[in-house]
Amino acid sequence: MGELVQLVVSGVATGAIYSLAALGFTLLWQASGTINFAQGEFVMLPAFAMLFCVLAGMPLWLGVLAACAAAMIVLGWGFKRLIVDPLIRHGVIPLVIATLGLSTFLKTTVRAGYSAEAHQFGSPFPGGVFRIAGINVSWADVGTLLVAGIIVIALQTFVTRTVTGRAMQAVAQNTEAARVLGIDVKRMVLYTFLINAVLAVVAALLITPTYLAKFDMGDSIGLKAFLAAIIGGFNQTRGALLGGVLIGVLENLVGFYVSPAYKEGVALMLFLGVILVRPEGLLGKVEERKV
C-alpha cells in the first residue's frame, strides 16, 4: 500500500509538470485558435537559457528570471508576431505545419549551435527523502508540487479575479462580442502568449533535473502535454491539469507494476481510450463551429 501511495505522489508531481505545458496548449487554443506543436521545444529552450545563466555564474533564481524575460520576448511576443499573426488568418493547418517546422528548426539549431549531449541541470529543491506515515516522499516531488500548485492557483486567480483576466476569458469565449464591447482582443491574445512562455520556463525548471538539458528533451514533454490537453479536454484549462496528472500517475504505476518498457506508451493508450469514448475529453465541452 505504501508503495502505491509513493508511486501516486511521485506521479502527481511529474504529471503536474505535464499539466503546466498542457495548460499552455489549452490557453493558446482558447485565446487564438493556435495549436503549437513546438511546445516541447518551448520547454527545451528555457532549460538551455537557465543552464547558460548558471554556467555564467548567476544564481539559479536569477537565471529563472532572465529566462522568463527572454522567453516572454522570444517565445511569447516573437512567436506571436512572426509566426502566428501572419498565418492564423489562413486557418489552423498552415499554423500546425509551421509549428512542426519550428520544432525541428529549434532542435537542430540547439544541437548544431550548442551540443548534442545531455547536460546536468541542478534541482532547485533539496535532495533526499523524508518519511511520513510510513511513506518515503522526496523533497523534489514536494517542491515540484508546491511550485506547480502555486503557479496554477496564481493563474486561476489572475484569470477569474482580475479585470484583465475577465477580459481574457471574454476573448476566449466569444472574440467577436469582446471586440464590440471594446476589449482589446490583440492585447489579450498577447497576454496569453506571454503566460504560455512563463509556463514553459517553469516546466523547464521542474523537469530538466530529471530529463537533463538536451536538444530533444522537448519531444517527450511536448507530446505528453499535447495528449494531456486532449485527454482532459482541449477547451478546458481544468482538463489540462487533470490530463497531465492522470498521465503522470499512470506512467508511474504501469512502469512499476507492468514494465518500464510500457511507460512511454501510457499517454498514447490513455489518449486512444478517451478519444474513443469521449472525443471532447474528460472535462471538455462539445464545441459548435460555424462552417
Binding site: V163, R166, A167, Q173, N174, L181
Partner: peptide
C-alpha cells in the same frame, strides 16, 4: 453573444470594464 462561462454579473462587468 453572451460569455457563457461567466456569471451574469461578470458578463455585465466585462461589457463596461474596458472603459474604466
Amino acid at each position: 453573444q453572451v460569455f457563457g462561462q461567466l456569471s451574469v454579473r461578470d458578463n455585465l462587468i466585462a461589457a463596461a470594464q474596458e472603459f474604466q
